[in-house]
Structures are given as structure tokens and as C-alpha cells.
């Protein structure tokens, strides 16, 4: 049986690891390579690195972080932030990333998904979808690390991305992100029940029960989280024991 995955997400800004609430109020939470080492020791299933302020300079720093992490962390590494061409994808795969997360370019240039999937295989193309829910209950996609609203429904966007060859979808509710009050269950349940590729649910974990809820009640293949690992004494290792004891199929 395929196991559900626990994926710490490391947000990067100017070479440091940061964490915010609803994609703002970022604070420094340490050195990303050190954190990756710790997560490796705690048997995380994968790691996701996201550069939230991608620039030409930050790209070099992120590459360096991935290179260092890849020397010691023998698990899948996903990297995202400012990826807009097949050359970008190749650069990251060449230095040790296994997958890339495409966010803004999936809206501005969806063909990149098809090109990337054809060139490198769909297994390494993760499309990261950030969205907010409006007061009338409709949802809108956001890009540029949550700074730009797009007149696009996330479910419509996800369908287009999977049709183009996205190998996985990482879904983040900006409203829930960093609030540690649980995941956006309804939408995760809906999307994970409809798509044919794995869904990584992200944004909102504050308690171990939140992981359990997503993994037991929806068809999400994985949970991503960061605040719970930065700001509480929970770790991937404690998470997997809790989940395993509660009947969720995880690595122990």
C-alpha cells in the first residue's frame, strides 16, 4: 500500500527560512540547510523549498541551498519560486532537485507545464495552486507569492494544469496558511476526489489532528506544513507515530 506523505515546506527569502501568516508578516525561522538536515533525521518523506521572493540573485542562493541539502538528504526534493522556463527546470533538476513547483508560470504560460512534462517527465512537474475564498464563497487563484489576484477559479485552473501534464498538484489556501487552525477541508476533499494525480494539501496545520483529518477524510496523497514544525514541538517523526496510531498508512 502506498503511504501518505508528510512534507515539511521550507519558505526561503534571501537565503533564510521564513514563515508568515496568510502569505505576509514573515519572520525569520532559521537556516534552511540546517532545517533540511533536521527534517531528514526526523524522517520527513519529502521536502519542498519555495523561494517566496524570487530574483536573479536569490536563484543562486536557492541553488546553493538545494545543492547542499541534496548531499545529505536522500529523499525527494521539490523546489519552486520564479520557475518560468524549461531552462529553469533543468537548472534545478541538474543540481539535485527531483521535482519543481510551478506557480505563477502555470497561469501566465500554461504551455510550460506541457513542455516541462514532455522534456522531463510529468512526475517532476508539480503545479502549486494558491487561492483565496471570497465572502460569496467563490474562489480565486493568486500568483506572485499571493500578491496578484487572477480572475480564475482554482478548480478550473487545476483541471487545465492536469490536462497539460502536471504530475502533482500542491494546493494552498492562503486564508488558512500560517493560521494553524486546520486545512481548507471542503475544497481539498473536492479536488482530491476528482483529480487523477496526487494532491498535496498545504496550509493550516496547527495540530496533529489536522493532518489526520485531511489524510483520513479526503483523498489527498500528502500533507505539507511548516508552522507546526517551526512553532510547536511537533516533528515529522511525532506526526507519523500519531498518524500510524490513528490508522493512517504512513511510514513508521
Amino acid at each position: 500500500m502506498l503511504k501518505k506523505r508528510i512534507i515539511p515546506a521550507l519558505l526561503l527569502k534571501d537565503g533564510r527560512m521564513v514563515k508568515g501568516k496568510n502569505f505576509s508578516q514573515f519572520r525569520d525561522v532559521g537556516n534552511p540547510v540546517t532545517a533540511a538536515r533536521v527534517y531528514n533525521a526526523q524522517k520527513a518523506d519529502e521536502l519542498v523549498f519555495l523561494d517566496i521572493c524570487p530574483t536573479r540573485e536569490s536563484r543562486q542562493v536557492v541553488c546553493h541551498i538545494i545543492e547542499e541539502a541534496a548531499c545529505e538528504c536522500f529523499m525527494p526534493l521539490t523546489v519552486g519560486g520564479g520557475i518560468s522556463s524549461c531552462e529553469d527546470i533543468k537548472d534545478f533538476l541538474d543540481i539535485g532537485a527531483d521535482k519543481v513547483a510551478i506557480n505563477s508560470a502555470a497561469v501566465r504560460n500554461p504551455e510550460l507545464i506541457r513542455e516541462g512534462a514532455e522534456m522531463f517527465g510529468d512526475q517532476c512537474i508539480v503545479v502549486s495552486v494558491d487561492y483565496k475564498t471570497r465572502s460569496d464563497g467563490t474562489r480565486r487563484v493568486y500568483i506572485d507569492s499571493g500578491k496578484t489576484e487572477v480572475d480564475l477559479d482554482p478548480w478550473e485552473h487545476i483541471q487545465r494544469c492536469t490536462a497539460l501534464g502536471a504530475g502533482e498538484i500542491m494546493l494552498t489556501s492562503i486564508d488558512h496558511e500560517g493560521m494553524m487552525q486546520g486545512y481548507d477541508m471542503d475544497f481539498i476533499a473536492m479536488v482530491s476526489g476528482m483529480i487523477d494525480v496526487p494532491l498535496i494539501a498545504n496550509g493550516g496545520a496547527g495540530r496533529l489532528e489536522d493532518f489526520k483529518q485531511v489524510l483520513a477524510e479526503t483523498r489527498a496523497s500528502a500533507v505539507a506544513a511548516s508552522s507546526i514544525f517551526h512553532f510547536t514541538d511537533q516533528s515529522p517523526i511525532k506526526t507519523r507515530f500519531f498518524l500510524s496510531n490513528n490508522g493512517v498508512n504512513v511510514r513508521v
Binding site: R5, D45, D122, V197, P198
Partner: peptide
């Protein structure tokens, strides 16, 4: 869902030296 992505157990059909020393899981 496909691709089959993630951690899954293997079952040994033959006990070969190349798999010695694995964890229980």
C-alpha cells in the same frame, strides 16, 4: 492515482543478499 508517487513497501520474492540489513518496514 498515476504516477505512483511516494513510499511503498516491497515484498521479497527471493531472499537475496542485495536486500540484507533492511529495516523491518
Amino acid at each position: 492515482k498515476l504516477p505512483h508517487v511516494g513510499w511503498n513497501d516491497i515484498e521479497l520474492v527471493r531472499d537475496v543478499g542485495l536486500f540484507k540489513g533492511l529495516k523491518k518496514e
